[in-house]
Simulated scan of single mutants.
Amino acid sequence: MKILGINASPRGNESNTLQLVKAVLKGAESEGVEAELIDLYSLRIEYCTGCGACYATGECPQLDDFEELFERIQNSDGIVLGAPNYINSVPAPMKAFFDRLSDAIHCQMLTGKFGCSVSTAGGSKADAVVEYMNSVLMTLGVTVVGGLGVLMAGNPAAPQQAAGSAEELGKKLVKSVRGEIKYPDQDEAHRQTTAYFCQLAQSDKERFAHDYDWYVQKGLIK
């Protein structure tokens, strides 16, 4: 089993969010699994141009680090997203990454994986950023096990104080992957989302040729 942490903070080792992501991964590792950490700012992820090539061919014309990163995500069982609050949302590299996941959403490529999100904020809305990142995971077909938002608010020790909760989140993530914790409501939501995108692919086979072929291969379109 492998848990992948993706941190989107430009502050390197000084990142408060990084401390939370590491704590989640530490909790996961305590359950006997492998964990990997990726610094999103060390990668080059170009902006989505909305060309639609991914829907038609399954390939993106952008030549950057996206495909390698997505392959590492596909080869993981659990995903931890970390981002500070930048004007009530995630920093630009994380948003650029999210925007490149359009075909992965249409094909529900991450179905069966589990994930969570963590965020830090100077004064407010860390929880809102966590909710946003978790909503992206849900849209991808990932089952969300929880999240953690931490407000600094003049307290530099806040990430360390929240480390215990972050580690527990990592343990919960692993237990969820193992099937020890069930999420029937999310299972049904994922089923409905997959049905929607199957119907979308069938409604316009030419435009969504790759998506159509994907669902045929999965046996969901006969």
Rank of each mutant, 00 (worst) to 15 (best):
M1S: 12
C54V: 13
T17G: 03
A121H: 09
Q62M: 06
D39M: 07
M138V: 09
N155D: 06
L101Q: 05
C51A: 02
V130Q: 08
A162I: 04
V21Y: 10
E168Q: 13
G147H: 13
L200I: 10
Q108K: 08
T120I: 01
S124T: 03
T17Q: 11
A189I: 12
T143P: 02
G154D: 10
A157K: 07
S119F: 07
A92I: 13
H190Q: 13
M138F: 14
V129K: 00
E34W: 05
M152P: 00
M1E: 15
E36F: 12
I38K: 08
H106T: 05
P184A: 06
V33K: 13
T194R: 08
A157G: 09
G115N: 06
T139G: 14
S15N: 07
A209E: 09
C51V: 09
F98Y: 02
L137C: 05
A166V: 01
L151T: 05
L69N: 00
E67N: 01
Q186C: 00
S165Q: 14
K205N: 03
V136K: 02
Q217K: 14
T49C: 10
K171P: 03
D39Y: 05
V150T: 15
A96H: 07
F208K: 03
P91G: 01
P91N: 03
L140I: 00
I45R: 01
V145L: 07
E46D: 01
L4I: 08
K182V: 00
R44I: 06
S9Y: 04
